[in-house]
Design a protein around this nucleic acid. Structure first.
Length: 323
DNA sequence: GGTAGACCTGGACGC
DNA sequence: GCGTCCAGGTCTACC
């Protein structure tokens, strides 16, 4: 008999809307079940992986039910709660959304404010690196292969977990390139894993706790992220938003497309990139949210509501830079 | 400080 | 089925 946890949520939390709010919900090992509107994925806990299914049957603001495929110890329950809280941003209470909606009223009705992320910062960093310099299907493929080749299953038939920093740090670059198809990112990913790997009883060289610490200002965090292998201006800005720091926009070719197609901008790629950055200045500390929800609305106008997207269909049909 | 070219993969396309 | 071209962000060398 597996463990069942009840997890309280902020009054404005809606599982389908807040999970299906960022492209990572479509990447392994996440699995959004369209039929049951539940999220399934393995979590890495003290005694190994455990697969959790998360449901919210009582509507917006109601508690979550998290069912695991095995019994969890006391410490594991605490870790699982913490990882689910991070992933679903349950620590962002209603005051965060209210502050955002005061700056950008367009999202008040839908209640959009949270952006889905991973249970750990390390997984967010790796997912960001797999999204650089590739089209979306390749990102999907890399994440699937990383889990299949290096992840662990909690039980027979259960999906494999995302590889831990410790596991990835021990992996040969050739394995990543040959079996996970990560290309030239192979050595960079091993180097990243070494930086995020716990060192015995000491914290890792890159300690997620430092990055999550709100007393450090955005500029310092951004500069430190830029020192990571495989992380440039786009990736650093994206990791910033995944850390809950929305004062920068991750500018890429998709920003240029959005500038041209939706904001009506003209000129060279460089001019539009600059114009897009200036356009969102007015949203201050929330500018990434405003930018992202505009992009997301564009995708939903083309594909329908995100909570109805089937992972494999979207992976196959979405082309360049659609997330 | 700015810029050109290499890095790798998967998909599209032409033959 | 094969070859070629293209998209994508980061890194390094060079001016």
């Amino acid at each position: 008999m597996g463990t069942r946890l009840t997890i309280k949520t902020p009054g404005d939390f809606a599982l389908p809307r807040d999970v299906c709010s960022y492209g990572y919900f479509l990447l392994a090992p996440n699995l959004w079940d369209v039929g049951s509107q539940t999220l399934l994925r393995p979590l890495d806990l003290e005694d190994g992986p455990a697969t959790v299914t998360i449901a919210q049957s009582g509507g917006t603001g109601s508690a979550l039910r998290a069912g695991f495929d095995r019994a969890l110890g006391v410490a594991e329950r605490k870790t699982a709660r913490s990882q689910i809280t991070r992933m679903l941003r349950l620590d962002e209470d209603e005051t965060v959304a209210r502050a955002f909606h005061r700056v950008d009223r367009r999202w008040k009705k839908s209640g959009r404010s949270r952006l889905f992320r991973s249970p750990t910062m390390f997984e967010d960093v790796l997912k960001t690196v797999t999204s650089c310099n590739v089209t979306w299907p390749s990102t999907v493929h890399m994440n699937r292969r990383l889990c299949e080749v290096l992840g662990r299953s909690s039980s027979k038939g259960a999906p494999r977990s995302f590889p831990t920093a410790a596991k990835l740090a021990r992996t040969r670059p050739g394995t990543l390139r040959g079996r996970c198809r990560v290309g030239y990112r192979d050595q960079r990913m091993v180097d990243l894993a070494k930086l995020f790997r716990p060192r015995g009883s000491r914290p890792p060289e890159y300690d997620p706790a430092w990055f999550e610490d709100r007393s450090h200002d955005d500029e310092d965090v951004y500069k430190r992220l830029l020192e990571l292998p495989g992380v440039g201006p786009y990736a650093a800005a994206n990791i910033m938003q995944l850390l809950g720091r929305f004062s920068r926009i991750a500018l890429d070719t998709e920003s240029v497309r959005h500038g041209r197609a939706v904001l009506g901008m003209t000129g060279t790629e460089r001019q539009i990139t600059k114009e897009v950055a200036e356009h969102y200045e007015k949203f201050g500390e929330h500018k990434f949210r405003s930018y992202w929800f505009e992009l997301w609305r564009f995708y939903e106008q083309k594909r329908g509501p995100a909570e109805l997207w089937a992972r494999d269909d979207i992976a196959a049909s979405f082309t360049a830079s659609q997330f």
